[in-house]
Simulated assay, not measured.
Amino acid sequence: MASKNEQEFTQIGRNVQVNGNITGKTDLRIAGKVYGNVSIDGELILEKFALIEGDVKCGAAILAGSIKGDVDCKKKLVLQDNAKIIGNVKAEQLIINEGAIFQGSCEMSTTTIK
């Protein structure tokens, strides 16, 4: 696997709207709108005014925008103070900052628990 410095990075700009699913093995930064499911192996960064209407699967995530759908994060999921999730969350670690909105259920699991 490529090191963090060598790993690909994809960005969807603020004025871009995607209608359809996104899949990939890269890190992904979204500043615009996505109407479809997002499934990536890397880290998802969702900027403050960004929106995803669909389910999300990712390695890790830092969210400041809005998601209307379920989120399945393999590692750490961080909801910054402007984040909003309407849907269920599955993550190994969940951090919710003051001011974030989360409406749904949460399932936390880790392979290190015995």
Rank of each mutant, 00 (worst) to 15 (best):
G99S: 01
L63E: 03
N21L: 10
E53R: 12
S3L: 03
V38H: 00
K25F: 11
G42Q: 05
V16Y: 01
R14D: 07
K84F: 12
I22W: 03
D72V: 13
E107P: 04
I30Y: 01
T110A: 02
I40R: 10
N15C: 00
I22L: 10
A83C: 06
G69K: 04
V78H: 09
Q80A: 15
G59W: 07
I101W: 10
C73A: 09
V34C: 02
D70T: 08
L77G: 01
A2D: 13
L51S: 10
I62Y: 13
D27K: 04
S66R: 12
I86S: 14
V71L: 02
K48S: 08
C58Y: 11
D81I: 08
N97C: 13
A64V: 06
G42M: 05
S39K: 15
D55F: 08
K90G: 09
E98S: 12
N21S: 14
V34I: 07
V34F: 01
G20T: 02
T23D: 07
S105P: 06
V34G: 00
K68Y: 15
T23M: 11
T112G: 06
V16N: 02
I101C: 12
G54Q: 00
C106N: 04
L44M: 09
N88H: 09
K33T: 12
D55G: 05
I86K: 15
A61G: 07
G99V: 01
C58E: 09
S109T: 06
D81A: 13
V71D: 01
V78E: 11
V78M: 11
E43C: 13
M108Y: 02
C106F: 04
L94Y: 07
V71A: 02
Q11L: 15
I113A: 15
V78D: 07
